[in-house]
Design a protein around this nucleic acid. Structure first.
Lengths: 228, 228
DNA sequence: AAAAGAAAGATTGTTTACAATGTGGTTATA
DNA sequence: TATAACCACATTGTAAACAATCTTTCTTTT
C-alpha cells in the first residue's frame, strides 16, 4: 500500500499547492478553503493556513480577512505593473550578468542557446517548449548575476506569477523565434562584458514581450476590465 | 484604568512588532520568542506566529525551522545586494515618474524640495531629519510612478529594510546636502518629462549612496564578514 | 412583488493542549 | 583535561475545540 504523501510539512504543502496552481488544477479565481485542503493533505488547518499565507506573500493567491483566499487573478492593469517591475529587475540582471560573466558562464549561455536553436528548428511554433526555454535563459542570467535578493524575487515570485498570468489571459501563441533572436543579441553583449548594451537590449526584450502580450489582449476585448 | 492595547489582531501585532524593530527596541540579531511575545501582547501564540511569518516575508526577521526567528542582520554582501535591487527599482520609478508627471505632481515635488532646502539651511548636518526627507522624496516619486507592485516592494519592504540596515551597520553621518542636490537634478529631469535622464540620474544617486555607505564600512573593518 | 431584516450555515480567527525538535548542560569515560 | 553521550529544558510544530465573522437563504413587512 502506498501513501499518496508520507507526511507533509508546511514546505511540502506549499510546494504541492504551488504546483496545483501553476498547472491549472486550481485555476485563477478558485477559492481555496482551509478545511478542504486540510482533509486533502491529511493534516490539520494550522499548516494549511501557514502555507496559504506564504503563497499570498509571493503573490500566487490573494487573501481577504474573514473571507478566505483564492488563486490570484490578473487584471490588465496588474499585468502592466507586472511587466514594468519585471523590466526593472531583468535589466539589472542583464547588467550584472554582463559584468560578472567569465568563460564558464559564457559557455553555459552558449550551450543553452544552442539547445534552444535546435528546438526552434524542430518545432517552429511550439509555443510551450519555447516558453520553457525562454524562462531557462532568464534563469541562467539571474544565476550569473549573483544577487540572492533579485534571484529570490524573480525565481520565487515573478516567474511563477508569470505562469499564472499566462493562465489568466490566454496568451497569443508564443513569439519563440523573435524572442530567441533577442536572446542572442543580449548574449553577444554579455560575451563582450558590455553591461550598458546588455541592459538596453534587455529593456527592449521585455518591452517587446509586453507589446506582444498587450496586443493579444486588445483584439479579443472581452470584459477583461475586472480590477478586483 | 487604561488598557495598553485594546485587543490586537494580527495586523496590529505586525505593526507593533515592525515599529519595535525599526526603532531599535528589538535590535538586529535579537531572538523573538513566540510565547514571550504572546504574553506581551496578551494573545495566544497563533496570531504571533502569523505576524512573525509576515515579517519574515518582508525581510525584517529571519526564520529557521524548529529554531525560531530573530531580527534580521545585514552582512556587507546583503547590503550590496540590497542596493543593487533598490537601484533597479528606483531607476524604473524615476523613469515612470518622469513619464506620468503632470503639473500637480511637479508642484508636489517642488514643494517637498523647498521644504527640504529650508531644513538643510537650518540644520546643516542634521543627519536624521535629512534621511527622513530623503525617504520622503523617494516615496513621492514612487507615488507618482503609479505602479502598485513596485510601490508595495519599496514602501513595505525595501524602505523598512533600509532603516534596519542603517541600524545594523552604524552609518557614517548622512550626506544630506549632496543627496539634496542630486534630488534637485532628478526633479529637473522629471519637470522636463525626460525619463531617460531621470533614470540615469537616479542610477548615479543610488550608486553614490552605496559608495557613501560602503566607504563608511571599509574604515572600521570589524568582523563584518558574518554571512549567516 | 420587492426590499429589509433575521436566522442558519459555512468559513475563518483564536485559544488551548499535546507532540516533536533543537539546545545546552551534565556526567561519564578515555 | 578533553570529548562524547545522554538527559532535561526551552521552544517551535501540530492538532482539535471554541469563538467570531461573513454569506446565504428564508421570512416578514410595506
Amino acid at each position: 500500500m502506498v501513501f499518496p504523501h508520507a507526511k507533509l510539512n508546511v514546505d511540502g504543502i506549499v510546494n504541492s499547492l504551488r504546483d496545483k496552481i501553476l498547472t491549472g488544477t486550481y485555476p485563477p479565481g478558485e477559492r481555496l478553503v482551509e478545511t478542504d485542503l486540510a482533509d486533502e493533505f491529511g493534516v490539520s488547518r494550522g499548516p494549511v493556513r501557514d502555507a496559504l499565507k506564504r503563497l499570498a506573500g509571493v503573490g500566487l493567491v490573494t487573501a481577504k480577512n474573514n473571507v478566505g483566499v483564492q488563486v490570484r487573478t490578473f487584471s490588465l492593469a496588474d499585468a502592466k505593473a507586472f511587466y514594468q517591475l519585471r523590466e526593472a529587475l531583468e535589466v539589472q540582471v542583464a547588467q550584472l550578468a554582463a559584468q560578472h560573466a567569465g568563460d564558464a558562464e559564457m559557455a553555459r549561455i552558449k550551450y543553452l542557446l544552442h539547445e534552444h536553436e535546435e528546438l526552434i528548428h524542430r518545432h517552429p511554433d511550439g509555443a510551450y517548449v519555447q516558453d520553457e526555454k525562454d524562462q531557462d535563459f532568464h534563469l541562467v542570467l539571474v544565476d550569473i548575476a549573483s544577487n540572492p535578493l533579485i534571484h529570490k524575487l524573480l525565481a520565487d515570485e515573478l516567474y511563477p506569477q508569470s505562469v499564472l498570468l499566462r493562465r489568466s489571459h490566454r496568451m497569443v501563441k508564443g513569439r519563440g523565434a523573435k524572442a530567441f533572436f533577442e536572446h542572442q543579441q543580449i548574449a553577444e553583449a554579455i560575451y563582450a562584458n558590455d553591461h550598458v548594451l546588455a541592459g538596453m537590449l534587455m529593456t527592449r526584450h521585455i518591452q517587446s514581450s509586453w507589446r506582444s502580450f498587450y496586443s493579444g489582449q486588445q483584439c479579443k476585448s472581452e470584459n477583461q476590465s475586472d480590477d478586483r
